[in-house]
Each structure stands twice: as structure tokens, then as C-alpha cells.
Design a protein around this nucleic acid. Structure first.
Lengths: 188, 188, 188, 188
DNA sequence: CATGAATGAGCGTTCATTCAT
DNA sequence: GATGAATGAACGCTCATTCAT
């Protein structure tokens, strides 16, 4: 059963899970998810051995999707700062346009269903951004603090920025810039 | 009143709830909480009409406790910056010393059991810090951004700082200072 | 504890029980009954050892009250038929004026909380009516059927008559008469 | 459909419910009903969304069964009186042979779990008998009273007759006839 | 493989009754 | 005696998971 027959069904379940999680939290039942996916109750378990496994895979899928949007078309010809801003901007726009995915990702992220392995894999996908940050960081204001700490701070500033951008999409551009400037002051 | 409702028991239930939430998440059963509190199943409902009510009251209790520790003994004779640092430092130390309370508070904060009223009351308790920040902010680097945004950024930086301080208590002092400096650069 | 201190409280509980039974059926909780009676939860059990005991005593109290209203001021100078009609009429009027008592009595009557003893005592209270009926019956149309059967038929006709009288109190007089005539045709 | 819902199981649950209601009243637990039906606790809810739904469906099933027995093989060639007697007799025999069903039906009938809709449907099933009665009634002794009242009286006489017939099955035939004669005197 | 019925542990909550005050 | 908190069994119902079809 390495690759179950229908990718369509797998994807339908994943999409349904996002909806269900947004509407009912992580306690959304597998029956509801299956129903919203248009498949039978039991079919759920053909594609995901347990509910927990769905959560782990959904988390990775969402995080990967987010990263690939954020890291999309990175122009190599420009300054690092511009490269970082490019990612930052993509990221914020993703949040504004995919609020459900972001909400589901957030809920999954704080749940205790995620395995350590999943969390590790999750961190990897944003590594390219981390590598850009690193170049700024090594001569920046926080050069004496560990990279991990700086990355975590960046993440939290990004999350806050995305929260505000999503809540007021008409000011998204503004929050995007203000948030980025704040980040830059903090670490550059 | 025959046998008055016992504060001891109420507190035992609240404490047990913290433990249970840390160990099992918000789906910790009322039966488990009661058991850990050393009272009978049904006694839970003498003190809290519903599980939801427990969550709301626990949230407020934890948030109030956190705030009162953070805002403790604010010296009025010193600079604003020193005042803010004092709060910041108390806050971080609270996190290091009460990791369970902090974890429970975080889980409760993202749950959808909290009423709007509870959330509002919860925001109030850190208002004194917000008022200090405001004085810095009005001439600071982010003076064009809304206070709400700045407060949210401060919060997220604080949370990240506390995460790292808790994870490596021996470096707590260092993270505390580094985090504060980062905050200051960001907004002062 | 043969006669607990306060008859007031006992009566308050009995009255409250009627209300509670009307509103919530026999599953009305002892706590609710106590509350409506204005006494504490535990006081209930000072006056009635168990909920079942309350039900049995309430049943007798209601049935006795009904009988004493129905059998009130029986004039001995008139024909048997007139005597019976007098009881019949009192009975129907009681039903119209005390619909809650009647409803509670009905629910208690079909419950399986009543002991055989209670049921027996309950039958006794209408015995004077039975004795009147007997005199008609012994030469009547049903003289070959047992008295018990005739009494039961009379009871069921009475109940139906009371149902209709209560539902349309403005036609109560009419139903009272029509019902009685029907009874008379049936057995006289 | 994978494993179709089994009529056997549905019927087993309905039968078990009758038993359980007879033995424990309407407060018979779903767990007990399931157990007596030989299915798992949760299976109950595959067949009936709620306990209330079971009660409503059981009521209809019982009432329909009763009616179809009572109204079985109505000979059209005979007098109305004979037709009515035929129904009456079938009805009484049903009561003697299915005392549990009758007891359950009675308890359900006075419960407040029944929806108005269920009650309405329930009334319909005995309508053919009502129509026969109507033909007698329109020129009978009670022609000035409403049909509803007469039907209700007939019902209550029938119930009483069935009670006595069931309690003394060896005299069932006698009660059947005596009851019918009483009814006839009352309304014809 | 897809389906949906079957399972039974588990949940939040209620309640008759007891008992400390 | 009156009070109301304490108790724990019980209840209706849900749900992740299994398995017959």
C-alpha cells in the first residue's frame, strides 16, 4: 500500500481535513473529514493508518506548500536583503490568501500529535530562508546570539505580521513592510 | 452554609487541571482532573459548572498570576527602559519557574473554549506593561505603526525568549537580556 | 422522626413535587423539588426517606384530596342516582380546577414506583362511591359482570370525561352530563 | 452498500426495547437494550439516532401492529355491528396475546418523548374503526356529543376490557363480549 | 480497493443519597 | 433539624478503528 490507488482521494481527504480543522478544531472527527471529502468512513483509513498520521502528513504538506510559495522564484541577482524581502513578502501574501491553511497549520503545530520527526522535517523546508538570514546575522546586531534564537524570533515576528495582514487585508502591504523593517532593525 | 465550598478543593482542581492539560492536552478528561485533585468525579461540577467554565477560570487565574508576577514591585524612580526591563525580566523568570503554568496557559489561549469576555479580561491584566511600552513607542522607530501591532510584536518576542530561556535555564539570564535588546532595537 | 418538625415544609415539598412532576415528569430531580419548595437539597430526605417514598405519599395525598372533594357533602335524602351524580359532578369539577394535581396523580398512577400497598390504600378512598354504584349495579344491565369490572369501566369513563372537560372548560358542564348519561346507560 | 443495515438487528433492538421497557420502564438504558438485543452499545445508534427516535419508531411500530391485527380480515358482507365486534374481538385477543407490547405501547403513549407528528400518525392507524363507529354514532344515543368524545370513550372502555381480559385470560371471551355490550349500550 | 455497519472504551454531565458542619 | 458539599454509579452519546461485504 505504498502509494494508494487514487491521489485524488488522498488530496480530497487532506483538503477536507483543513476545512474540518478550521471549523471544528483538531477534534474534528474522521467521519466528518471523510464525509467532507466525499468518501466513506472506512476509506479514510486506507489512505491514513490513523488520524494522527493524517495530522502529521497534513502538517508537512501544508508547511511544504507554504515554503514553496514563500521561496518561489528567488532572484539570485539581487542583494541578500532584497532576496529576504522577496521571501518575506511571498510568505505574508500566502497567509493573506490561504487563511484556512494557515489556521490549520497553526493548530497542528501546537498539537501534541506531531512526532519529533515530523517537526524536524517541517523545519527543513524553510532552511533556504534560514541560510539567507544567516548571512545577515553573522555580522549583525545579534551576532553573539545563536542562529536558532534569531530564526525563532524571525518566525514569531513573521507570524505576528501575518496575523495583522490577514485581519486587515487592505493594509497587508503596509504590515508586510513595517514587519520587515522591524525584523531588519532587530537583527541586521 | 453547612460545609462551605472549600478553596483548597477548588485550588486542587485548578492545579490538577494544569497537570492534566500539560500531560494530555485540553482533552484531559474531567474524571482525570478530579482524580488527580483527589476528589470524586462529581465534585468537579460542584466547583465548575462545566469543563468549559473551568478552562475559562483557569485561563484567567493563570494569566492574572503571570501578570502579577511580571508586574511585581515596579520601581517608579527609574527610567522607563529600566521599568520595562524589570517587567520583562520578571516575566521571563516566571516562565522558567512555572513551565507547566505557561504551557497550560498557551494551550488554553489557542482553544476555542474561551469566551470573548474571558479573552478581554485576560488582555487587561498586562495593560500596565502596555502603558509603559506606549511611552517608548510614541517617539520610537515604529511610531507610524499602530500600538496594537507593536504590542503583539513585543508579545511574540517575549514568548520566543521565554521558550529559549525555559529550554536552557542555565542561559536564561542571557536570553532575557538578548531578547530585551532585540525588542528595544525593534521599537525604541 | 414519626412526625418531622414542620408540617409546612412537608407540604411545601409535596406542592413543589406536583409542580415539578407536571413540568418535568417523574424524572424531576429531588434537587429541583427541594429548590422549588424553598428548602435545601438534603432537607428533602428528612421528610421523605427516598424519592420513591415521596411518590407514594404524594399519590395517596392526591388521591385522598380528590376523593374528599368528590365525596364532599353527600346529601342522604335523595335518590341513589342523584347521589352518584353529585359525586360525579364534584369529581369532574375537581379535575377542571386542579389540572396539575390530576396530571401528577395520573403520572404517579402509571409509574412503577408505587407499592402494592399504596395502590390498595388508594383504591379504598373512593370506596363510598363504589358502594353507591353497587346498589345500581346489582339490578342493572351488567349485573352478571363483576363489580370490579364495572368500577373500572366507570373509572375509565370518568377519566375520559375529565380529560375533555379540562381541555374545554367552557363545555365542562356539558361533558359532565353527557359522560354521566353514558355511564348510566352502560350500567344502570 | 458494504454491510447493509440488518433488519434482523433493527428488530432485535425493537424487541429488546419492549422487554426492557416492560421490565424497567422508559428509563431502561440504551446500554441494556443493546445488550438484550445482542449488539454492542454503539450499534444502537446506528439504527436509531437517539433514544427518543427509538421510542417514536417503536410506538408507531407497535400501534401499527396492533391496528393491523385488530383490523385484520374485515368481512364486508355483514352488519356494521358485526364488523365492529370483529375488530373489537381481534383487538382484545391481541392484548391477551401480546401483553408486553401492550404495556410498552401504553408507557410510550403517556411519555413526553413522542413528537406531535408521531402521535398524529399513531391516530391514523385506527381510523377505519373510527369510521365504522361513526356510522353507528350518527343515529345513536350520543348523537349530540362530538365524535372525538365518543371515540375516546370507546378507547377507554376497550383498554379496561383488555386489562381484565389479560389479567384473567380464561375469562377473556366473556370480558370481550361484556365489554362490547357495554360499549353498544353506551353509544348505539 | 471501497463501503459503511460494528465495536466498545471513553466522555461530560446528572442525580439520589450521605454526611460534615 | 437544616444545610449544601461530597460521592460515585449511571446515563446518552461519540468516535477511532476494524472488518464483513
Amino acid at each position: 500500500m505504498a502509494r494508494p490507488k487514487s491521489d485524488d482521494k488522498r488530496n480530497a481527504i487532506l483538503s477536507a481535513a483543513i476545512q474540518a480543522i478550521v471549523n471544528h478544531g483538531l477534534s474534528a472527527s474522521t467521519a466528518l473529514i471523510a464525509q467532507e471529502a466525499g468518501v466513506a468512513n472506512g476509506t479514510f483509513f486506507t489512505y491514513f493508518k490513523t488520524k494522527s498520521e493524517l495530522f502529521n502528513q497534513l502538517y508537512l504538506e501544508l508547511k511544504t506548500g507554504m515554503a514553496s510559495t514563500a521561496l518561489d522564484d528567488m532572484p539570485p541577482e539581487v542583494t541578500i536583503k532584497e532576496q529576504i524581502y522577496n521571501v518575506w513578502s511571498n510568505w505574508v501574501h500566502w497567509a493573506v490568501e490561504s487563511p484556512n491553511k494557515r489556521r490549520a497549520l497553526a493548530l497542528l503545530g501546537v498539537s501534541d500529535e506531531l512526532t519529533a520527526e515530523t517537526r524536524d522535517e517541517g523545519h527543513l523546508v524553510m532552511a533556504p530562508l534560514a541560510r539567507l538570514i544567516e548571512q545577515i546575522h553573522e555580522n549583525g546586531a545579534m551576532r553573539d546570539a545563536g542562529m536558532e534564537f534569531v530564526i525563532a524570533l524571525m518566525n514569531s515576528i513573521a507570524e505576528t505580521t501575518m496575523d495583522f495582514a490577514r485581519r486587515s487585508p487592505e493594509k497587508a502591504e503596509e504590515y508586510c513592510k513595517t514587519g520587515f523593517d522591524a525584523l531588519w532593525r532587530l537583527m541586521a
